[in-house]
Write a protein that binds this DNA or RNA. Sequence first.
DNA 1: CTCCTTATACTCAAAGTAAGTATTAATGGG
DNA 2: CCCATTAATACTTACTTTGAGTATAAGGAG
Lengths: 329, 329
Amino acid sequence: MSVRTQQQAIAASRELAVDLSAVIVCVTGDQPQILAIRSENDAADALASGPLESRHRTLEAGLRSWVESQTHQCLGYVEQLYTFGDRNRMVVGSNRRVRMLSIGYLALVREARPENTSNTVWRNWYQYFPWEDWRSGKPAVLARIERQLRSWVADAEGAGDRRARAERVRACFGLGNIRWSDERVLERYELLYEIGLVPETHRDRAPAWCSADDVIKEGALMIADHRRVLATAIARLRGKIKYRPVVFELMPPTFTFLNLQQAVEALAGLLMHKSNFRRLVESQGLVEDTGEVSAGAAGRPARLLRYRHDILLERPVPGARLPQALRGK
Amino acid sequence: MSVRTQQQAIAASRELAVDLSAVIVCVTGDQPQILAIRSENDAADALASGPLESRHRTLEAGLRSWVESQTHQCLGYVEQLYTFGDRNRMVVGSNRRVRMLSIGYLALVREARPENTSNTVWRNWYQYFPWEDWRSGKPAVLARIERQLRSWVADAEGAGDRRARAERVRACFGLGNIRWSDERVLERYELLYEIGLVPETHRDRAPAWCSADDVIKEGALMIADHRRVLATAIARLRGKIKYRPVVFELMPPTFTFLNLQQAVEALAGLLMHKSNFRRLVESQGLVEDTGEVSAGAAGRPARLLRYRHDILLERPVPGARLPQALRGK
DNA sequence: CTCCTTATACTCAAAGTAAGTATTAATGGG
DNA sequence: CCCATTAATACTTACTTTGAGTATAAGGAG
């Protein structure tokens, strides 16, 4: 890059604020939880977050430092999600508008520490996204959401536009012959945001298709774009558990098959077939027997398992959706 | 976020430059290509890139505007890759050091337009990563790379450290009982960078494990962290073709099975079994027959296919690595 | 001891996959 | 004009993975 362009970049940066935010996830029993920062006056929670500062060596280091100072939580697994930077979502600072660059992170921790304090709470993530939990059947909110979506489709201008809207709704919310996909969390939220079905739309900008009265009020709010970052995190995590052994970052040192299954079900928001789940886990060779058995609970005691740390990466890439490459040659 | 934190953020941003860069990919025949910007004096190419400016409505809009002004290429499919922000990789601007935030994008285009000009060239991406092309057997460079990696493993301090290094090398480069994974492009590059086996290490900072003489010189360089962004793009694309129909963004309106297979092979850097590839594509219902056949080439003419745009999202998520969720209920 | 609960083992059919062989239909050199 | 070459397409076979379900085992409460 030439010196001129560098100077332009620096000039441009004068109007720029970079915010690092973390979706800190744990699973307690059979519920997925995230660490939320309570606000003093506001009703809406926040994620642990703070601005990038020059003292931070790397982005991730900056994130960790903010999280630790705000929550006293030590992070293990951390992964960058996405950088949001719409000018729509700006904040007013000193006396001019600055662009907000928001870099979201996903962090996984093993247990809900710290306990809830005056500042922080562990919250079930389905409090923010009630339509994402299908473990006890189709969530009730979806009836209203679907009704609104159908009328949005009907309101389209031309036939082509209407078809496009219908297609998008079907893909996001699994209507018609399309099945619900646990991974489309962000696409669903963005659709709701775009057409004004969540309160954030009306908070951030001029009213969209939907009036403020028709807004879906189920689901807790968060400040700024934090609910969007949360949606991104859930989507990423749901996708990732399918091809990388990330669930184990959320499990205690030893656990039973049922514990593991419930953790996965909590994240995916779906129930799975018990024996098939066991068979899959066993076939992957990711866990080993500790020799001990669980005690206390009702029913036959279960074997206690442990994650095989040594195996980390050696599995043949599973579920690759291309014919296996030719071997030999 | 409170007003105080906002002001901190703005203060911090004074030392910040945000660079948007695009890996623009097309496939010509059976080769994957990227659009590189020739440098005037320097030997190293660059990606199309430029600083984020306040006139840009969104990050993606900023990227598109830079790409169009630098290359006169219109972008179709665009996807954000990752935001890099190590303080190691800084640039000197005016008279103080600023942090470089680099947001990488992947863009797919159908044909190599514009033709090469004085400023831009389409280059085979394996020019930058010769060890990533296994289509005609194991690349020759890997012999030297593996030798160096083995001695890096041997140089580890304790036995634990040595095992960790060995494990990492095995996972990245598919040694021992682990197979080569086409998707680990970035992990491989990062490992080479970290231990000083690519020239960038020595350009960016104090010498690492490896002396400048032992550096792997095969593979063209790029400025700044652009080769890292390219590695990220290749990795993402190789992963994505396995579960989303993105290849079609790179295909002309009509194509044969062989064209499609060669495109996929070009991206993956691996050969596939012909009949199985056809069966897979057919079973997905992603293409339809145009009725026409290809002409001119030697051999029996092939049917011309076209991508079914209408089907975009309706496929049942394939290859999900969890037991299918219970139906009904 | 009996029932309830949960764990674990085993079965079975259907679908999907890896790796071929066989057949068909063009081109181009002689 | 025939035949070797090249490529497309069709068919086969054994094997693995899945979805779905049933049967048996092992504890605790009453």
